[in-house]
Design a protein around this nucleic acid. Sequence first.
DNA 1: GATATAGTTGATATTAATTATCATTATTGA
DNA 2: TCAATAATGATAATTAATATCAACTATATC
Lengths: 143, 143
Amino acid sequence: MNLNKAKDVFRNYIQEKGLRNTQQREVILDAFLSTDKHITVEDLFNVIKEKNPGIGYATVHRNLNLLFESGIADEIKIGNQKTRYEPKLGQTHHDHLICIKCKSFIEVHDDKIEKLQDKLAEANDFIPVRHKLEIYGICKKCK
Amino acid sequence: MNLNKAKDVFRNYIQEKGLRNTQQREVILDAFLSTDKHITVEDLFNVIKEKNPGIGYATVHRNLNLLFESGIADEIKIGNQKTRYEPKLGQTHHDHLICIKCKSFIEVHDDKIEKLQDKLAEANDFIPVRHKLEIYGICKKCK
DNA sequence: GATATAGTTGATATTAATTATCATTATTGA
DNA sequence: TCAATAATGATAATTAATATCAACTATATC
């Protein structure tokens, strides 16, 4: 999914749910899609605030939820850390290896695992929509 | 791991860390190991309170963390729900299929996935300790 | 057994992220 | 244009988890 595709997906989602396309929503959409990875509500709010001081924290928060619901954002919750969001653009889905010592995390992906997950869900009469795989352990640096 | 083994593991953990074996700790250990699955701090506190009204919420909370750290409890965090704990007794590790409609979840297990996860970690110079796999979707009943 | 050390407890306060509230404003469709 | 209603923004409320701290207690040492 590229940038414009992502915008379309979001706008369609808004329309289909009978919601409205506001200026704030567009600003937040743009800002979010051009951020670096793993941004928190607070991070995004601070970025937006510079050029759009009128937009409130609650609005950013609400719209990040919408971005997630629409499917163009991934939500990353690790432990008790604050929720992070990440645009789903070109890259494939990925999981995380999380270091229990330094709290850093790296992204990984394994097609075989993904396929087995789908099989596992099917075997239980379950329609998989999304998933979260976190492997906790000790990273290279902390060994 | 059976019940007595679990107790040993916990007591050893306590000792090795230079912690102390208190009456409250024993009560909480017993109560936890005899509960049903997926109990919250509040649940366990309420159970304990009946026979041991002197034990405080904070103590139950702290000790559930210890039970988790010692390895005899699994910690289950789903979305924004409160953390649940589960004794790791006879049963093998398992993951969860979580219904996004009715919020129920079922336990599943797949050895192949587990092994691939270990491989994936190794390939990244990462020592896996534990992991969490949650597959979100729609369950049988909610289809 | 007495004593010192330091971990534990229990009641409560604090923290911090998320969500709710609500008056005001803005968008959409008719 | 106008009515209906969603959205916003400031702030309050919620809530789980954690921190605080005086009193207590387990443990090791003498």
